[in-house]
Design a protein around this nucleic acid. Structure first.
Lengths: 207, 207
DNA sequence: GAGTCTAGAGAACGGGCGTTTCCCGTCAAG
DNA sequence: CTTGACGGGAAACGCCCGTTCTCTAGACTC
């Protein structure tokens, strides 16, 4: 289909645009990257970009949606190889690998939420991403033998978000390791054998 | 000094600009707010703004610095009224109050870090803010009777960051309550009386 | 009351943005 | 070979940005 391009025949147009957008949006921020920069990086004409994605906002949404899908797929595949509470700990091992990548620039969804106060669609995708991740953690928490899996999942979610932000803002790769040990401590406290009075004791202080 | 203004005599110029910048930058994002909007909100001329802050970047830095100072001062004052591990829990109570404010728009420093990939000065201030907060948590952790206060402070920091992000991205006010109960659980597990083998057990899985 | 200084209003400028449009060269079909 | 669709390159449009500059009106000093 596409002439002069030795790569995959059809996927090239929309795919190359989305690949370029992902690289640029993630590393430099959505607002700092212009459409011209995306088409230059993709080696594509403006007309092609606007034929596939009708505006920059739509392109941003497509970028976030694909990133969400790939993130969840990879994490799920990594967790599927393990059982019990190792599934939970695998999440933090994956975070550690992610933070060590040279291109790491924090969580794209958090960044977009902080950057695009207008554009409700993008913020909705960010929210959906977090809820999907929370559901994934809930499944892992149920695999671990704890008294209250949903509470554990909420706490794990806090640790994951905190680790990502800390690794990015403070430039601290080891945040994943610390979050992992904190997750292990929370699982131990929440297991029926240890400290089973902790959740209720904590709950009675809620205002 | 200032004619036609019944308010405080001298502080009006720079203060009003900084107040306006804070309101606008925090609620709408730095990049989405133009200089014109700031001067209009402040009721001030462009010349006055550029006389006090020599560029928008400098204004952003002043905005972040003042916010950092006020945030730490208020939190410290709130914690000073309590003792022991109640000092730690007060942090999460403060978060809960903050999340319930209608103007809540997440952590300004996280937002700026995700928004301004260029502008190293702003990102440095964000990093310093997080390190100051971490130091404050370390002091609170030492007040609580736990075996390893620094490790507890690191974990509390993860919970604080996670709660802020969750409250903002997912729109979940109760993230502060969940983080508080998680903090209480971690303190119970880290206290000499309970589960004192947890930290070492967690540490041996670090890669 | 004249002079000076201050500070707000707004024009001007150079540049970048998102989006549309036009001009080509290249390929495929007839 | 002719025709037409396609797509990259680039110009053009209108708009907004950060920054500088000019103008003007009021307030204080002497």
């Amino acid at each position: 289909m596409t002439p002069l391009s030795p790569e995959t025949p059809d996927s090239s147009a929309a795919q190359r645009v989305l690949d370029a957008a992902e690289r640029l949006f993630y590393s430099r921020g959505v607002q700092a990257v212009g459409i011209d920069m995306v088409v230059a990086e993709a080696g594509v004409g403006l007309k092609t970009l606007y034929a596939h994605y009708r505006s920059k906002d739509r392109l941003v949404e497509a970028y976030l949606r694909r990133l969400n899908q790939r993130f969840l797929d990879r994490l799920q595949a990594r967790m599927a190889q393990l059982q019990g509470r190792d599934q939970v700990l695998a999440v933090f091992d994956a975070l550690g690998d992610w933070f060590a990548e040279p291109e790491f620039s924090g969580c794209a969804f958090i960044n977009v939420a902080g950057e695009l106060h207008t554009n409700p669609a993008a913020r909705a995708i960010a929210r959906e991403h977090k809820q999907s991740l929370r559901a994934l953690l809930q499944r892992a928490a149920r695999a671990a033998a704890v008294t209250d899996p949903d509470t554990l999942a909420d706490r794990l979610m806090l640790l994951v978000e905190g680790a990502v932000v800390t690794a990015y803002v403070e430039g601290d790769e080891l945040a994943a390791v610390r979050a992992r040990s904190a997750a292990a401590a929370l699982m131990d406290c929440a297991s029926p054998a240890h400290c089973d009075d902790v959740p209720s004791r904590a709950a009675d202080r809620l205002q």
